[in-house]
Design a protein around this nucleic acid. Structure first.
Lengths: 353, 353
DNA sequence: GCGCGGGCAGCAACCGGTCTCTACGCTAGG
DNA sequence: CCTAGCGTAGAGACCGGTTGCTGCCCGCGC
């Protein structure tokens, strides 16, 4: 029933009464072919329902027309939106998109990365915070050089550069600045005991956000209460758990700053279950500005991160022909989105989209 | 600075003092190689930091170890979770995952599908509802045969089979049954004027859900008010807009059934802005059971769809060796998740995850 | 009328693995 | 001592496009 024989250029050539080279040239378009010949070839291609073999093409030619993306988890809206930006820009540039997930497992990253090298992608885009671990860093540096040697480009999204001389582009957003602005907003509203939930030890993203949190305090000569900074993960469950623990321990706080919107959403649920009103009793803020932040009630105040633009910028950096002297490091801005979770509810409607 | 010369098996062979065939055999593992020789080859591979060229391998061998997934949009949690199931199962089976998005554009689907054929993927998994359009259907059928001829497998997820004799696996979920159960729940709670929001003309998923909605009414000898069925899209904005229109038109309804959770979330926001309490004044239900449904306040009653399992099942179907006589069509069950949006709030806490 | 040049098609050599077939060395059995 | 047989390595033909180079044919100019 099912066949195994694919039709090749030579099949097409035979049917059109020309040579394989001619078929290839019609396909490529980059060589003069007589109109009559071209027409016969195109007819043969249609008749035989022929499509080129991408692997054969990749082997001969220099480029694979493929961009690879590595994310922790497609399921996270934050990564999904970045991936979407990448996908969009890549397909606009005629590239295919290869997606791999690591589930945050540093060992899987190595395996995934080797697979990408095997695929000889034009570019590899690694998304998400970096582990601040010398071993991990060395591996990524090694990877950067290996890719460079193979002629493809590495772009890091949402993580710091690997260091001078390492051939990797970087697209970051102002992570610390966003956290600083957000915490400043809470402090200026009078909050003095702000809980920071979902710190992840050794993760660059987490470290930068906490740094912004600390800096905003320092600016007012305040010192955050270490007991209000809770370790966890960037998940809803983590925010829920952390909040319950703080409440159970009887800690005093009037505001919660979640490491991400998901963390904040979990906090809101735990607070509601404990009978605390948001924002009257406790103000809550998140980070990332993912769409579901609007559905949390009240809608989450958060820091907007230009997710899709991060993805698009990464592709631009990856595919640009010339190597700009210093354009290999882009930092996009972030800004606070004020919503109901940090202010008394008012009749003005929120945006619908 | 950046090189273009990749190291090949012959480089490795030269360094190890053996032939290319031997290196290939060490790599493949499927042929006796003397331990001493193997060790030398492995050392050379490590020294040169060699990785095979996946394209060259795909050209010679029969299999590409690649599974391609086509979804409308990675950004939608529903698709993202299915994609995650696929990715998980594929990488567990040693396959790489190729991701393409169509943004619901039927023309893009054709282009995407040709690209997948070019890639000679072991399997192509197409996710999401089908357009009930003869032209579209013909194209998909053509595609199914083309893939089959090329020796790869097509699996459709969340859409009906293309017909007998068409070589394509199908993994569905009980779409109509879920809608039927959900509407029945609303009807049995006494609701008689239920608005259905976000119907999409010509989309199989939408048609099936509406069919369940109608059937539940019919069972009680009721006929849904056509004025309460609003066309739209499977988005938050669509639900918001539809609800505002119904309210503006002064239509009476005591419950809203959203085509998806996102539609329902938009409806909740519009209702809240209009001063209607959920569920006291209007009950709201969604479909899909995506995680953000928990953050809508009150938490959304919805129909659970086993998203990740759909993805995993699709991969299983795609990669299973033997062609089972009738196992090429799988239907997974769905069930109603009762939450606060359709019942009076009670003190029992919702699940945290 | 002859020669030159341009336009277009074909030949064949890659690209980098895999795989089949052959060949070699060594041991064991006759 | 010769050979059968096993275990292992190498040579070379593929896979399916792309591409540099050659060469043909025809038109045009002198």
């Amino acid at each position: 029933m099912s066949g195994r024989d694919a039709t090749t250029v030579r099949d097409v050539a035979a049917r059109a009464g020309v040579s394989a080279s001619t078929v290839s040239r019609v396909l490529g378009g980059t060589y003069p072919v007589a109109p009559a010949t071209r027409a016969r070839v195109l007819a043969a291609i249609r008749d035989l329902d022929y499509v080129v073999n991408a692997h054969a093409r990749a082997l001969g030619g220099a480029t694979t027309k493929t961009v690879a993306v590595v994310v922790d988890d497609v399921t996270s809206p934050f990564y999904a939106h970045i991936a979407r930006g990448v996908e969009e820009a890549a397909s606009a540039a005629g590239r295919l998109c290869l997606l791999c997930t690591t589930h945050g497992d540093p060992r899987r990253i190595v395996a995934v990365v080797d697979t990408m090298r095997e695929q000889r992608a034009d570019a590899v885009i690694v998304v998400g915070g970096a582990w601040q671990d010398p071993d991990y860093r060395d591996r990524m540096t090694h990877f950067a050089h290996a890719l460079d040697r193979a002629g493809s480009r590495l772009v890091l999204v949402g993580r710091p550069p690997l260091g001078p001389g390492v051939p990797a582009g970087v697209v970051e957003y102002d992570n610390e600045g966003g956290a600083f602005a957000l915490t400043s907003h809470l402090l200026s509203a009078g909050h003095r005991r702000i809980a920071y939930l979902g710190r992840v030890a050794g993760l660059s993203t987490s470290a930068e956000r906490v740094r912004g949190f600390d800096r905003a305090h320092a600016l007012l000569d305040l010192t955050p209460d270490a007991g209000l900074i809770v370790d966890g993960a960037f998940t809803r469950a983590s925010g829920y758990r952390a909040t319950r623990e703080l409440l159970a321990a009887g800690r005093e706080f009037t505001a919660v700053q979640g490491a991400t919107d998901l963390v904040a959403a979990g906090a809101v649920q735990a607070l509601r279950e404990a009978g605390r009103r948001v924002p009257h009793d406790v103000a809550v803020a998140g980070y990332d500005d993912i769409p579901p932040a609007l559905d949390v009630h009240p809608a989450l105040t958060t820091v907007h991160v230009p997710q899709e633009e991060l993805g698009r910028a990464a592709v631009r950096l990856a595919l640009q022909r010339a190597e700009p002297p210093d354009g290999r490091h882009i930092v996009l801005g972030t800004h606070v989105m004020l919503r109901g979770s940090t202010k008394a509810p008012s009749p003005q409607p929120d945006d619908a989209d």
